[in-house]
Amino acid sequence: MNPALWISLLTASAVISFTPGAGAINTMSNALTVGWRRSFWGVLGQQLALVLHIFVVAAGVGVLVSSTPILFNAIRVLGAAYLGYLGVRLILAKPRRGAGSAHPDGSLGEGAWSLLRRGLWVNLLNPKAIVFFLAFIPQFIRADAPLLPQYLVLIATVVGVDAVVMWGFFATAAKPFRRAVGSARGQRILNTVFGALFIGVAVLLLFVH
């Protein structure tokens, strides 16, 4: 991939990553509830989903998903339902003593695997991401050049930029609000806010085509 094309890829990736969505909401929520450092596990899960989306598109499965309304809509409804579930559970979660203890599943001290798994599903159950990559990837892949090195550069750039933006920007942006989770009232307010955001994204995913 020539330098000019890579810079274009880098710029496009940054713009996409800075656009708020379910991943950003999940990252900020994690940073508030489990802390900035541990929120990285959720970010890692989201990046694994991006890699899987790119593999799906590269393998040609993305065309099948985008051209099969039943399959596309099934994934869309599942994605919306999962985000809605996270939102409702977060709103209903009981405040707990100590900062960083209230989670969407109502558990105390959510583990790394749980954070990673939720991050993975948040990004993976979004069929529009597949459609987006179908339009995005061909702009930066040249069929007359070896494909593997190009895809490796594309994955490294997209995932690297998104990880930096999610953890370095969105998770960091949540730091000033960390004190709020130290009180029951603060936890209720933040749980309600982020729960409503999850539900809002779910509604958009379900009804905006």
Score class of each variant (00 low, 15 high):
1 M>R: 01
4 A>W: 09
5 L>D: 00
7 I>G: 07
7 I>S: 07
9 L>H: 13
10 L>Q: 02
12 A>P: 07
13 S>A: 13
14 A>E: 06
15 V>R: 00
18 F>E: 09
18 F>L: 04
19 T>Y: 04
24 A>Y: 08
26 N>L: 01
27 T>R: 02
31 A>L: 05
32 L>E: 03
35 G>V: 14
40 F>V: 15
40 F>A: 09
41 W>H: 11
43 V>H: 04
44 L>N: 09
46 Q>F: 12
47 Q>N: 09
47 Q>V: 03
53 H>A: 11
53 H>M: 10
56 V>Y: 15
57 V>P: 14
59 A>H: 11
63 V>K: 13
64 L>A: 10
64 L>Y: 13
65 V>L: 15
65 V>E: 12
67 S>Q: 14
69 P>A: 15
71 L>C: 04
72 F>I: 00
73 N>W: 09
76 R>C: 12
78 L>A: 15
84 G>L: 04
87 G>W: 06
89 R>C: 12
92 L>W: 00
94 K>F: 07
97 R>F: 02
101 S>R: 11
106 G>H: 11
107 S>M: 02
108 L>D: 14
117 R>W: 03
117 R>F: 00
118 R>A: 03
120 L>E: 13
121 W>C: 11
125 L>I: 00
126 N>V: 12
126 N>F: 04
129 A>G: 06
132 F>G: 05
135 A>L: 15
138 P>N: 00
139 Q>T: 01
141 I>F: 01
143 A>D: 07
143 A>N: 02
145 A>G: 00
146 P>I: 14
149 P>T: 06
150 Q>K: 08
151 Y>T: 10
157 T>Q: 05
158 V>G: 08
159 V>D: 00
160 G>S: 08
170 F>K: 05
179 R>Y: 15
180 A>E: 03
184 A>E: 14
185 R>P: 10
191 N>W: 10
195 G>N: 04
196 A>R: 08
198 F>A: 08
199 I>P: 00
199 I>Y: 08
202 A>P: 07
206 L>S: 14
207 F>L: 08
209 H>S: 14
209 H>P: 07
